[in-house]
Design a protein around this nucleic acid. Structure first.
Lengths: 140, 140
DNA sequence: CTGGTTGCAAAATTTTTGCACACTC
DNA sequence: GAGTGTGCAAAAATTTTGCAACCAG
């Protein structure tokens, strides 16, 4: 399973000229450590007592997204949820009970994209593939 | 290509005891005819002059979703976009230029779900798979 | 030091809802 | 006629932004 680490994220941020502030550090550490898809509010509940504002959480999540250090979950209800992950192309299996995430390494869809092109004359530029289910714990 | 029709949608609504009002009829006809992923505002721009309120548009889209007569697009930006489609399991290829939609009939993912189960011990209950690209027209 | 980053509060956006009236069946 | 559905306007909820103060490099 290809997980990321806070160190990887810090390094990537700094490589792009961003500063490593306390609020950022805390958001990143929390999101990575939980390996769950979290909302801004989830993070704020954990980090408010340490003085991290909701605005900084939103700003950090957006920054991580831009640098492909986090990805939004597409079936997330009203609030956006984010997963800390590595920039390489891969997919997730996400528990809709606890929002814990596992990686799906292989991407079997390149041949499908070609088939679609022949059928529909669309150039396929990207795709979303996410699996939802129940992890062993939530299944009880 | 498996498209739906306004008639199909009307029939399904009535089969579930819902009335066929003028605002509903117009929303459904517009969404089906365009075969594009549309936002509530897109629909309102077309239908406001015919007296259809934004509230009714939202309510109709939600009703269609519940009955699996429409599906939300998961990579849609700030506003939710909906596609009128048939209830059967299938996938879409969506143009990010004009939001026109084509269907992808085959679903190749059942075997993948089993592989995931063995890897991660998640029960896979559902998945999102959407392709994004450029249709021939938007490619210019 | 210097400019990026933060927290706060206000604003912006999208979506939902209460209610009186209207329309479908 | 009964009860669902509508429009309007206000409310809710999430996310974004302006600005003065602050901190990392």
């Amino acid at each position: 399973m290809i997980r990321t680490t806070p160190r990887d994220v810090f390094a990537a941020l700094q490589a792009h000229g961003h500063k490593l502030t306390q609020p950022r550090r805390l958001v990143i550490e929390t999101l990575v450590d939980q390996s769950r898809a979290m909302t801004a509010n989830d993070l704020h509940q954990v980090l408010a007592e340490r003085g991290v504002s909701l605005a900084s959480i939103y700003r950090t999540l957006e920054l991580m997204s831009e640098l492909h250090l986090a990805e939004p979950v597409h079936q997330s209800g009203d609030e956006a949820r984010y997963i800390a992950c590595r920039p390489e192309h891969h997919h997730h299996i996400i528990c809709t009970g606890c929002w814990r995430v596992a990686d799906v390494d292989s991407c079997l869809l390149e041949p499908v994209a070609n088939a679609i092109h022949e059928q529909s004359h669309f150039d396929v530029e990207s795709h979303i593939l996410e699996f939802y289910g129940r992890c062993a714990a939530c299944r009880r």
